[in-house]
Amino acid sequence: MNQAPPVETRGLTKRYGSVTAVENLNLTVRRGEVYGFLGPNGAGKTTTLRMLLGLVRPTAGTARVLGEEPGSAASLEGVGALVESPAFYPYLSGRDNLRMMARYAGVGRERVEEALRTVELSERAKDRFKKYSLGMKQRLGVAAALLKDPELLILDEPTNGLDPKGMADMRELIKRLGRGERTVLLSSHLLGEVEQVCDRVGVIRGGRLVAEGTVAELRERTGLLVRAEPLREAAEIARRISGVEEVEVTDGLLRLSTDPDRAAEINRKLVSAGLEVSELRPAERSLEEVFLELTGEEGTV
């Protein structure tokens, strides 16, 4: 197996005339992880994925996919992709569509049946694609991406348009596919999806990567939340503790702006002042708050 990072871009840029779709993007996806590529609609996610697949040529910068030139036979050999909406030949059955894709991919018919089983579409495989529901179309798209049993799976908004049950099923499928050594690059504008499925997240806005890290890192701990009685007295005492910059009372809790690692010390001081402390935990921003802050968007959650 190739030891290069599955995806690595440096200064990747794509301009369409005066419009910059992707700007100076530096992205590294690590082997075996499920990487969430998060951003609002029009942020440049799909253009980036198209560049990684060789469908679109970058204006500047470089990209390597499995250590190879994007779109080259060597890189595509290990990559399976579902880009935007699943697109197949409407007059062919699901199975015939996959058989055709298998011919392009140079894999045998047994892979078609295996991919159909994986996405649980075997029973409807003989129906024409145009008769499929959106959920079935998405699953067929994932099946096509799995034909080569790829090292790297690129999925672009795979839950788009699905009902809640379909979304939950698709997330389960992605989690299952991401187990083991396979790397998954999942593009999405759905925070919940990324939070549930991904190991690391890159947030893109206006074609630029504005943040990257694990979900926990992105949510970052910003202080301490304390439940203590009596609350007003607890707030007075907390304000006198050195290193506590700000104290807010919200929803029956004190929010202290301080280093969360001082939890034990603060607990001791409150208890020794005769207060009853029933809860003390790090305060974290929700991923939605992070997203809104980074992208300035009304987040889809």
Binding site: E77, V83, S85, A87, M101, Y104, A105, G106, K148
Partner: peptide
Amino acid sequence: GWGTLKTALTQRPGRLAF
């Protein structure tokens, strides 16, 4: 019209061979 180029080309046929 069907958008099938992306599906086919990402399977690795190569543009000219396709």
